[in-house]
């Protein structure tokens, strides 16, 4: 299995590639008022309105820097009602992949309720990599933001829509 590796602070994390739709450079986001801090905003991804979560804020509490290596990882997110959504995850140093098997992962030994999206860990020659579980990511009501944005976008003469 292939995993995309990225970094938050000095720690490395990975995401299974099979859940990834595409990786794009950083873009300008449409801010959502009153949304949690970790929601960077929305952007027009090939005609679809996609909400973006800044994993840096979510995990380390400080926003991703605008670097070449900071990228939006567009993943297939299945909500509880089994509907597929595209979700953008913002992370720094998303420039490398790693190939490993499911059984290489070990449980981290400690589980934090607030951070259930952080899963098992694997080791390579540079150290530890923790897996991010997409399905446990917090955006239960991300759909609401999307609708709100669409409404806003309509009012603003569709300047974001193709």
């Amino acid at each position: 299995m292939l995993f995309l590796v990225f970094e938050i602070g000095d720690e490395r994390y990975c995401l299974e590639v099979s859940r990834i739709i595409e990786i794009t450079p950083m873009v300008i986001f449409k801010k959502i008022p009153h949304a949690p801090a970790y929601v960077s905003g929305l952007f027009n991804y090939r005609g679809t309105i996609v909400p973006v979560i800044d994993l840096s804020i979510l995990i380390a509490g400080k926003p991703s820097r605008p670097l070449f290596s900071t990228r939006i990882i567009l993943v297939d997110y299945v909500s509880e009602d089994k509907v597929h959504h595209i979700l953008g995850l913002l992370a720094e140093r998303a420039t490398e992949t790693i190939s490993c098997r499911e059984e290489d992962f070990q449980p981290p030994g400690i589980e934090v309720d607030e951070a259930q999206y952080l899963g098992d860990v694997v080791f390579d020659e540079s150290g530890m990599i923790q897996r991010v579980r997409i399905e446990k990511l917090p955006p239960e009501n991300i759909r609401d933001y999307q609708q709100e944005y669409e409404f806003v976008a309509l009012k603003e003469n569709n300047d974001f829509l193709p």
């Binding site: 450079p25 950083m26 873009v27 027009n44 090939r46 974001f160 829509l161 193709p162």
Partner: peptide, 11 residues
């Protein structure tokens, strides 16, 4: 940033 924001709107 602007360039890619524009690029990604294309299908």
């Amino acid at each position: 940033l602007k360039e890619w924001t524009e690029n990604l709107t294309g299908i």
